[in-house]
Amino acid sequence: MNTWVRIVRRREFTVFILIVILSIIFAVSTDRFLSISNISNLLSQLAGVAIAAIGMTMVIITGGIDVSVGSTLGLACVVSGSLLMIQAPFLLVLLATLGTGLAVGLLNGVIVAYGRVPPIITTLGMMNMVRALVFQALGGRWISGIPPEVRTIGLGKWLQIPLAMWVAGALIVVFSYFLSYRPLGRSVYAVGNNPEAARVSGVNLKTTLLFVYGLTGALAGFAGLINVGRTGIVQTNNGMGFELDVIAAVVLGGTSILGGRGTIVGSLLGALLVAIIKNGMILLNIPALTEGVIIGALIIISVLIDLVRGRGVR
């Protein structure tokens, strides 16, 4: 098949076209969409979703799902917020935040890989437990008034682009390379394609699952740090609904919910599409409730398209 035909038929291409079309619509119908402050705002919100989507892409490629990322982000916000309040060294804050996310993610991974509990159940339970932990830790109060000097990760910019987005970009490049060129990266695909064949070829299923869930947790934690940096506030509801955005980004970006295929770049485009829809709706003063309807419908439609097309292969 012709290379160009292949590119055009990819989901990433469709999403890219949608992004362009929506951008044009919003640019024409509002005067603020293309303003530097709006774009910068959009990108700094995008960064967290894009980073967590890296891990989520891998989880979904293995045929799993992780709905606990929102709660994990919430818990990471509590940890990083508390440490930033006492002006702890940034390296310590970073490690503690990543460590918190990693711990939750590894716990998911252990339960899925060793306990063989279905991922949706495991992470649904984890989502509720971790959220309860957040409530417990904050005790109904907010953490606020974190000084801007320690919030560089959320507020900083370089060449007009938020620092967090640069980090997200770097992580996307690194992990895309990892997925394409490292044997562990390929085993993520192998597990999602045919676990039995993977086992026979010597792929370690358990290691692979621990890795993807652990990574997803750690990245969700990192997204929490960015969130605190950006807003300077920690609330009990930080990250509620975040999992929906991340999963939407991944499935919109062409990762099959049945596992086996998908790319991180696709998820970035999916995240961008979600961010633009949300942003444009605010600018157009469309009620916030409609947003949920649109994102939810997009998830269902893209999975539907995927399943209908998937029937051809195999």
Partner: peptide
Amino acid sequence: PLVYPYLSVVENIFLGREIR
């Protein structure tokens, strides 16, 4: 056949035993 349907032919041959 034990295959990986969404992976390339090349990868189906070498997965688990990659040339590095």
